[in-house]
Nucleic acid binder design. Structure first.
Length: 1032
RNA sequence: GGGCGAUUAGCUCAGUUGGUUAGAGCGCCACGUUGACAUCGUGGAGGUCACAGAUUCGAAUUCUGUAUCGCCCA
């Protein structure tokens, strides 16, 4: 017996294969003028946690491209690395610190915390890289980078310095989204809105010295009453009548276009508006006049005089028509504040408690202050109605706590020119985005040209290289500048700017280009302090394509591998990351970072939710690899990657005790341990934290959706096993293709076609199509037909050598085409094939490469493509199918051979003749007659293949089951009747006949004729069978 | 509120420029272990292509609207 196991043992093989690749440095790329470069930089995974299936998909798709290109002879570099993910990582480590040791970051200090995060980073970086390696990612591991390593730090400093010197970086007070838990600003992109139940409080502010006829107080309403402490105005619309007119006109317009049902609703809105006009408009006009007259209000509780102002932000159609203005704590009010030049009073400490400007509420938390303010207003009889209301509240994505709009000093990157350059790169197609529909989002986002706030009040990240002295008098500032100028040398590595403020003081900011500049100490000795903040993590990620290649040094790698070839990423970071890489690449290197961007779908769980750590529904690719193997993981993911749809993947826990699969639900997905409903034994999950839970055996999280791929790996393995088992006596030989029999030429033709489809498919990122093409070819053509036909041929001494050559060649080509998707099993088989047929290939055998991974990509040999041979073979396949159908309907056992007669034209006869011998193996059929004169049998089961004008007859003498046969024929008849009726109707339609192209009409007529003849014949068969069964 | 996408078999998804009877895998039914593979083989059942209109000789495919779901941006 043979030594090849009938399963691919991926658990043992994968490690050995990886080791062999590493040893041969197959994934390593060097500057090589003899080859064209092909470069991909990995979207660096966050070191926040381990990878899930979304990363699995992303990296599989990259590896498929890079492996293909490597085989195509490019110097293929896949640059690996990880991202420090500033806020996300710090948040995770801080939360653990709190949970496990009840310490805050202030307890252990900046250095202490950063050290902890480095430990975390080391741990997760190792895990992540391990995951990538087990997936088979062919990165150049020798080049692995980290966004916070020295090389990236140098690039960050150089970039920051450059932008600072160009005056593209400035400091501004801006309303930022403040995370009171992490005590940092978070970007808009890190904020999610959560709808919660809240209240709408109506409050009265007294008017100062009302004139006769004027109201004594104005009513405002707010969902956040405590912010009144920071109010600096109340606004009313400057032209309430016009505003109402405009709204009414819009409603009438809408009504004229609305459906009947919606009209009623709009009518009631119009009614309300009319009432409002009557009841409130006079007062709003009066208030507006008071505002223009410069009247003031008394802000209760703090007793501050605030102006009544006119501003369009006040909406006359809602509430009281008046709105309180808190510029320091509301984005809209902030805009009003800028317009009206209002003071901006910040009432919050960074930790979310009230500061001195909160008056008697100083020190309270926001909820406490809210309660107190409401109570005090009520005591003063200044509180009106309280409405219940659903309120959309921004929450920090990272800490899950409510965001407070907060006025703070931040560093900004001016985006105007930079954004424009990145827009131009895409509009001019220098950077192509696939699928194309994502271009719009990219261009729209950049088109807003919003300045980029880059400072983060964190400790984990690239510290901002700025030293500052603030609050200087003009003379002091001038003196400082002189001192700075004396520090300048000719390297252009120190730069400064002076900002003057409203209060007449001056700030001096100094930026140093290089790390460990001795002038740091000098600066500090003259009173400068370094900015404590760090940079937004996207600042360093934006440099990734060039920083990893050595920029700002003019390295040979940068010269050779940049711009990179393609970027493969997920859609949620097109703006945050892709856009910023483009503009930074253009600014720093003067060239785009990549030529193409491919955006792939997201993997969702069974509920259609994205996988994420915080939800607990992430699947570790290692679990899937353990159960199904790395090739199945990759193939399974790639075949789901179409360009339209996100991928929904229901997942299950696998009980380690009884193998029972338990659906993952919203309830159980974040549990640290689960009791198996079948065997009732407990097992742990990836969330296990306690020692008790961790000591339980772990249940894998898997998905049945990888079974198809696992089975395919097995199929390929066994096709190879069969081939290798039949390679005895193989001798490499030249093959004269023109003398080969049909089945061999068919295989060559199919190989040429499949090679072409796969090559083009990979080049256009059509992964699902590529995997389907390969799956169908390998399974339905190579295995089901070529190998089956090869079985009898291998037994014939004359044919055996040619079949061996062809099988080796076919398998070899298939392995190479499949390698980028399924690297391990193909590499394992490649090694086996090297033992049996080290030199192989048709027509000329050549020595195979040492590894499939570095074997040359197959060329589609167009001279092998032969349409008439493919048609001829398809005809044969159809006849086989017909015989199988008849057999199945008669329940004829597979081991029985049935006599078959095939009636067809002389041409078809000569086409089928060469395949006659193979009907036995493929359909258990003995073809006793073939040609125009072939006759039906006495006890006959016929099937007409009208499209190719062939009639298949099976002799049922020994097998006849009259009822079964009658029911088969009757079913066939009813199908035919249905089709004939349809066609007759179509052809009876004068419009169709006269207006459709003649070609289409002819085709319909022809096929109607076929169907009618078939109908007649089936009817005859039924008659005969009935008569016969009566007679017997 | 604006933009993008989706809705096809019980489930998860394909479906080219509009043109015979809309496909695959899983699941289901029947039969089958003959030396590559039961992670297999052969056959079968199963679809009003979300709904309503329009264009067309002809629509899963084009257009409009509606509903539902998802994502992004305000």
């Amino acid at each position: 017996m043979n030594q090849i196991p009938d399963r691919f043992d991926h658990a043992t093989a994968a490690g050995q294969i990886t080791e062999a690749w590493d040893k041969a440095r197959c994934g390593h790329a060097e500057v090589n003028p003899d080859r064209k470069p092909f470069t991909i930089v990995i979207p660096p995974p966050n070191v926040t946690g381990a990878l899930h299936l979304g990363h699995g998909l992303n990296n599989t798709l990259q590896d498929i491209v890079i492996r293909t290109r490597r085989m195509q002879g490019y110097e293929a570099l896949w640059m690996p690395g990880t991202d420090h993910a500033g806020i996300a990582t710090q948040a995770v480590v801080e939360r653990r610190l709190k949970e496990q040791e009840n310490l805050s970051r202030h307890d252990i200090g900046r250095e202490g915390l950063v050290e902890r995060i480095w430990q975390w980073k080391d741990q997760y970086e190792k895990r992540i890289l391990g995951q990538l390696k087990r997936m088979g990612c062919s990165c150049d591991w020798e080049r692995t980078r980290f966004t916070l390593d020295d090389r990236c730090a140098t690039a960050v400093r150089a970039t920051f310095y450059d932008l600072f010197s160009k005056k593209l970086i400035y400091r501004g007070k801006r309303l930022v989204n403040w995370d009171t838990f992490l005590q940092t600003a978070v970007s808009n992109d890190e904020v999610e809105n959560v709808t919660k139940k809240g209240h709408f409080w109506h409050v009265y502010y007294p008017v100062l010295d009302p004139k006769p006829g004027e109201p004594e107080r104005v009513e405002i309403a707010t969902t956040r009453p405590e912010t009144m402490l920071g109010d600096t105005a109340v606004a009313v619309h400057p032209d309430p009548a016009a505003a109402l007119d405009k709204i009414e006109a819009e409603l009438r317009q809408k009504r004229s276009e609305a459906s009947q049902k919606d009209q009623a609703d709009i009518d009631s809105e119009l009614e309300t508006l009319a009432q409002r006009r009557e009841s409130m408009l006079p007062q709003l006009i009066q208030l507006r006049d008071m505002a223009l007259d410069g009247r003031k209000l008394m802000l209760p509780l703090v007793n501050r005089e605030i102006p009544l102002i006119a501003d369009v932000w006040a909406k006359p159609e809602v509430g009281s028509g008046c709105v309180k203005i808190t510029p320091a704590h509301d984005p809209n009010d902030y805009e009003v504040g800028l317009r009206a030049e209002l003071p901006m009073i910040n009432i919050l400490e960074p930790d979310g408690t009230l500061n001195r400007d909160g008056g008697q509420y100083e020190g309270m938390t926001i909820p406490a202050a809210r309660k107190a303010v409401v109570a005090d207003l009520e005591n003063l009889d200044l509180l009106g109605d309280i409405e219940d209301r659903d309120i959309e509240l921004p929450h920090s994505d990272r800490s899950k706590t409510p965001i407070e709009p907060f006025l703070a000093n931040q560093w900004f990157v001016a985006m105007d020119e930079l954004a424009q350059s990145a827009m131009d790169a895409v509009s001019s197609d220098k950077v192509e985005i696939f699928p194309e529909r994502y271009r719009k989002g990219y261009l729209d986002w950049l088109g807003e040209k919003r300045d980029w706030p880059v400072s983060r009040q964190l400790w984990w990240g690239h510290r901002i290289p700025i030293w500052s002295r603030t609050g200087l008098a003009e003379s002091e500032a001038q003196q400082m500048v002189q001192q700075l100028e004396s520090l300048a040398d000719d390297t252009g590595s120190i730069s400064h700017r002076v900002d003057s403020t409203e209060d007449g003081t001056h700030h001096v900011f100094v930026c140093l280009r290089n790390e460990d500049d001795p002038r740091e100490a000098k600066l500090e000795s003259i009173g400068f302090t370094r900015d404590p903040d760090v940079l937004d993590t996207w600042f360093s990620s934006a440099l990734w394509p060039h920083s990893t290649l050595g920029w700002p040094n003019e390295t040979k790698e940068l010269e050779y591998f940049y711009p990179t070839s393609t970027l493969i990423t997920s859609r949620d970071i097109i703006t945050l990351w892709v856009a910023r890489m483009v503009l930074m690449g253009l600014n720093n290197v003067g060239d785009i970072p990549f030529r193409q961007v491919f955006i792939h779908p997201k993997i969702l769980d069974g509920n259609g939710e994205t996988m994420s750590k915080s939800k607990g529904n992430g699947v570790d690719p290692i679990d899937v690899i353990d159960k199904f193997g790395p090739d199945a993981l990759r193939f399974g993911l790639a075949r789901l990657a179409t360009d339209t749809q996100d991928v929904r993947m229901p997942v299950q826990y696998e009980c380690p005790h009884c193998d029972k699969l338990i659906d993952q639900t919203k309830k159980n997905r974040s549990l640290p341990r689960i009791d198996c409903p079948a065997c009732e034994k407990p097992f742990s999950t990836q969330w296990a934290e306690t020692e008790a839970d961790k000591s339980l055996p772990r249940g894998l999280v898997v998905s049945e959706r990888f079974e198809t791929a696992r089975n395919f790996v097995n199929k390929l393995w066994n096709a190879a096993r069969f081939s290798l088992m039949n390679m005895d006596g193989y001798q490499p030989q030249s093959v004269d293709v023109s003398t080969l029999p049909l089945e061999d030429r068919w295989l060559l033709s199919r190989l040429a076609t499949v090679t072409k489809q796969v090559t083009e498919g990979v080049e256009h990122y059509r992964y699902a199509e590529v995997t389907r093409t390969l799956y169908d070819f390998a399974w339905d053509e190579f295995c089901s037909f070529y190998v089956e036909i090869a079985k009898p041929r291998l037994a014939e001494e004359q044919q055996r050598p040619i079949v061996q050559s062809m099988m080796a060649h076919g398998l070899d080509t298939l392995l190479r085409l499949l390698h980028p998707t399924m690297p391990f099993v193909t590499e394992a088989i490649w090694e086996g094939l090297a033992g049996a047929a080290p030199q192989r290939g048709v027509p000329e055998p050549v020595a195979a490469a040492n590894f499939a991974m570095i074997a040359p990509w197959p060329e589609s040999n167009q001279s092998d493509y032969n349409e008439s041979i493919e048609q001829q073979f398809a005809e044969f396949q159809e006849v086989i199918g017909a015989i199988r159908k008849i057999r199945a309907s008669q329940n004829i056992a597979p081991r029985e051979t049935v006599p078959v007669a095939i009636r067809c034209s002389p041409e078809a006869q000569s086409r089928l003749q060469p395949m006659k011998a193979y009907f036995a193996g493929l359909a258990g059929a003995d073809v006793i007659e073939l040609g125009p004169d072939a006759k039906a049998f006495e006890t006959d089961a016929p099937l007409a293949l009208t499209s190719i004008e062939i009639e298949v007859h099976v002799d049922l003498e020994k097998f006849i089951d009259v009822d079964a046969e009658l029911s088969r024929l009757e079913k066939l008849l009813s199908q035919l009747v249905k089709q004939i009726t349809g066609k007759q109707q179509k052809l009876g339609n004068e419009n169709f006949v006269s207006r459709a192209p003649a070609e289409v009409v002819d085709r319909e007529r022809e096929s109607l004729g076929d169907l009618q003849r078939q109908h007649e014949s089936v009817q005859g068969d039924i008659e005969r069978l009935r008569t016969k069964s009566k007679a017997s």
